[in-house]
């Protein structure tokens, strides 16, 4: 147990300094509403640190490299858990949605302008624009779809003919419309 003490001591020192730092930081931002920070980050950080302290207490391997890796794994795990909890709040989802809205507001006109200028440049060079290429590709997709439908119909006809050739009983099952058309 005696050899764990310096590590534990170092960890306690670090925790104390982090706590003091957080307190000082919180004091400085009390001018603006700090509700989100105290609500989300404080309990999360404490939880993360407890988890870390527990892990540090379990370190028993004499290999310093192993200890460092374990320390890093625990540190990352604690952060991952803390961030995961923060991101699972409605506050975060709302902030993300607001950020997306702002980004899209900025993107919309910019994209439109960029598209217009690139279309104009391509047109000046006598080259097809993006919209034209996309329209052509859409037409090809539509054509492919029509070919596939024809293929489906041919398959159906082929199956029908095979059934007719196989059994005379199936012939009766053929819709009358088909036979009457042939006659006319």
């Amino acid at each position: 147990m005696a050899e764990k003490e310096p590590t534990q001591e170092m960890f306690e020192l670090w925790r104390k300094s982090l706590e003091e730092g957080t307190q000082a930081w919180l004091k400085t931002i009390t001018q603006t509403p700090p509700a989100d920070v105290t609500q989300f980050w404080r309990p999360i950080l404490e939880q993360g640190m407890e988890f870390w302290a527990k892990g540090m207490g379990q370190v028993g391997a004499p290999d310093p490299a192993q200890q460092w890796k374990r320390f890093m794994d625990l540190w990352l795990e604690a952060w991952s858990k803390a961030l995961g909890q923060a991101m699972a709040t409605e506050g975060f989802a709302r902030a993300l949605g607001r950020y997306m809205d702002q980004w899209l507001t900025a993107q919309g006109p910019w994209r439109k302008a960029a598209e217009q200028s690139s279309e104009a440049a391509l047109k000046a060079l006598g080259l097809p624009g993006r919209a034209q290429v996309a329209a052509m590709a859409e037409q090809l997709t539509a054509l492919e779809e029509r070919v596939d439908r024809l293929d489906d119909r041919l398959d159906e006809l082929k199956q029908l003919l095979e059934r007719l050739a196989r059994s005379p009983a199936d012939r009766a099952a053929v819709p009358r419309r088909t036979t009457s058309r042939k006659r006319s």
Binding site: A93, L96, G97, D101, R111
Partner: peptide, 21 residues
């Protein structure tokens, strides 16, 4: 999970995103 929350219609406007991009 998280995607369900982030994509909730109260926070995420999918129409706006698709119409813009």
């Amino acid at each position: 999970g998280l995607f369900r929350l982030w994509l909730d219609k109260r926070f995420f406007n999918v129409d706006r995103m698709v119409d813009t991009l």
